[in-house]
């Protein structure tokens, strides 16, 4: 082995040069200014926007996009496909086609929905709706070059609702990992890319729990913030029990400006036991305020911010799917009316 090295070394002369430059310390980071920004309102808007990051746009957009289909454009498929992470009974369209009228389909979507419904909404006992949906896709549908539907990723949701003339309670959960945009899904300039989980309750008890990230492709909160990240639990003050903090959420939420600065607003710990990161007891009190930090730097503390989340508790915080929305059969897809 040594002789080999000598032979190799003898083939070519090699001169190493090392230059040592004087160390120049980095310039101090100029903190981004929040002048002109209502940072509390920005976080409130972020929460209302997060409530729209759910499966419905992907599902309804797929349905709308297929309402234009021609007999074999796109083709519907059945059968075993191990490449799609979907149940075997999922309905699939897959194609690369153009109808010749400017409408084109590219890629695939696979979906499956289940719905159970019982009871009577007018009765005292009420009606129970239990629905689930799953979707997977790598699809772009366009008309004359304009994307009317794009879904790339996976998503699912579920709704359980009990409703009577005097009573309404629902729980809704959704997860979206992927990107959704297009005029037939999220509307014009309202797409998003996310890996987000939402669990919400409504009716007699209103709450919102959300974990993950979302980037809005066009929308900017206060013309500046394009993304949000969070692990947060909000409870409608009117639904708070005696042991709940009605003034502020638990957890944290961050928003990112277009220069990639993240602003994290940290509230009370998610759980009483999980307070390892909360060294300052004063910041763990239920006072309606969180501490605002600039992420990625050594504890740049902007101070206390007290957003008013009371305005988020509207009927439109979550676009709750209706019972009909859980059904999109093979026949409906193949023969749109």
């Amino acid at each position: 082995m040594i002789s080999l090295f000598v032979l190799l070394y003898g083939c070519e002369e090699k001169v190493d040069t090392v230059t040592v430059e004087a160390y120049v310390p980095p310039e101090d980071l100029e903190l981004p200014s929040l002048d002109g920004i209502d940072i509390g309102a920005a976080f409130t808007e972020a929460i209302t926007m997060v409530g729209k990051v759910q499966l419905n746009p992907a599902w309804q957009g797929n349905r709308e996009a297929l309402s234009y289909k021609r007999p074999t454009c796109p083709d519907l498929y059945v059968g075993e496909n191990d490449d799609m992470d979907m149940p075997a009974d999922a309905v699939v369209w897959q194609d690369f086609c153009n109808t010749g009228t400017g409408l084109s389909y590219s890629g695939f979507t696979a979906w499956t929905g289940r719905l159970e419904r019982s009871g009577d909404i007018e009765s005292e006992v009420g009606e129970i709706i239990n629905g689930t949906r799953q979707m997977s896709g790598q699809a772009v549908v366009s008309v004359n070059g304009e994307t009317i539907y794009e879904f790339k990723g996976v998503g699912e949701d579920s709704l359980y609702r009990v409703q009577s003339p005097t009573y309404d309670r629902w729980t809704y959960a959704t997860t979206i990992n992927g990107m959704i945009r297009g005029t037939e899904s999220t509307g014009l300039n309202s797409g998003f890319r996310s890996d987000l989980y939402i669990y919400a309750t409504g009716g007699d008890t209103r709450s919102l729990e959300s974990r993950g990230n979302v980037f809005w492709t066009s929308h900017r909160i206060q013309d500046r913030f394009d993304s949000a990240a969070m692990d947060i639990y909000l409870l409608d003050p009117s639904s708070a029990g005696p042991d709940d903090c009605a003034l502020e959420p638990k957890g944290w939420i961050g928003i990112r400006d277009e220069r990639a600065y993240w602003y994290d607003l940290v509230f009370m710990p998610m759980d009483a036991e999980d307070d390892a990161g909360y060294e300052d007891d004063d910041r763990s009190v239920c006072d309606g305020c969180g501490t605002l930090y600039l992420r990625g730097t050594e504890t740049i503390d902007y101070g206390q911010v007290c957003p008013d989340f009371s305005s988020i508790w509207t009927e439109t915080l979550i676009d709750l799917p209706q019972a009909e929305d859980f059904i999109f059969t093979f026949q409906q897809a193949q023969h749109p009316q």
Partner: peptide
């Protein structure tokens, strides 16, 4: 000018049919 393929009719055919 993006190539205009919208007027061209094309349709990928499934490898198997049921």
């Amino acid at each position: 000018d993006a190539p205009n393929t919208e007027d061209v009719v094309f349709d990928e055919v499934p490898p198997q049919m049921l």
